[in-house]
Design a protein around this nucleic acid. Structure first.
Lengths: 135, 135
DNA sequence: ATATGAACCATGTGTGGTGATGGTACAATG
DNA sequence: CATTGTACCATCACCACACATGGTTCATAT
């Protein structure tokens, strides 16, 4: 059986001119669909190649979105069987990992600035820190 | 009196090919001179323009080094009267503000990574945080 | 065979930051 | 008038990264 036609049609619109990265637009809209109950736990998502083809995107771009959605437990990939909406998709769609990161970084940056550390110095130090997986 | 010749001669060598930024080389060497007692509290430093001329550097580059040294209380600028070594220069030369920044950032970055946050996401969030002075 | 996600190879474009340079101008002071 | 530090204006090359693209290959399983 090739699709059988009962894969949820994704009402997804990708705007090339939108400053928001394509993979991010994808994530946004899938989470939105989950939050508004247009898709729910167990529902199958189009395959990466399929969706890439439909939206005229590169498969790597879609794969990136799927990878992040899976990390956040919004979707679940079951190897060759395809990708499905995660049981806890709804609650996990509200949790914004990036927001937490932003908050923590803002606090730290504020502290640095108040201590007289230059923005330039903060950036340099950050760059170094990111390149020192060893400590 | 034009200099009177008793301004400490700075034994400073700037290496253009050194990957270390010129202004940073300057800071290093001045702190080093302080730590090895080659110059001490009260001693006058060459004026920004003077040093820039001697080392064949742009005055902005020297100004940047002086600005950072003053922030760290290694030197003290007295407006039109010139720049002098700070009373607590020696102890302040060992305190490395950047090291503290690096340590804090490393801790936070490690936490983020352990939480599954992508390096790319961390960088993006950091960039946003730096551009949100207001919150 | 066909299709899945995934892991590699690679390229190009655009953006944004640093470092360094140059010039001009200022108030304060000698 | 000369000199101090400082604050603006500006330009340039360099580098690192994000984003997106393309192609190939892989084990897995229908």
């Amino acid at each position: 059986m090739v699709h059988m036609g009962h894969i949820k049609i994704m009402e997804i619109t990708i705007d090339i001119d939108d400053p928001v990265p394509l993979f991010a637009q994808l994530i946004e809209q899938i989470k939105k669909a989950v939050l508004s109950d247009k898709i729910g736990p167990g529902d199958a998502l189009p395959s990466i190649r399929q969706l890439a083809n439909d939206l005229e995107l590169n498969s790597k771009t879609v794969a990136k979105a799927y990878r992040l959605l899976e990390r956040d437990s919004v979707i679940q990939t079951k190897g060759y069987r395809g990708t499905f909406i995660h049981p806890d998709a709804k609650s996990n769609s509200t949790v914004d990992l990036n927001e937490w990161v932003m908050t923590k970084l803002n606090e730290m940056i504020t502290t640095f600035r108040e201590s007289g550390v230059t923005d330039s110095e903060i950036r340099i130090a950050f760059g170094n820190a990111m390149n020192n997986r060893g400590n």
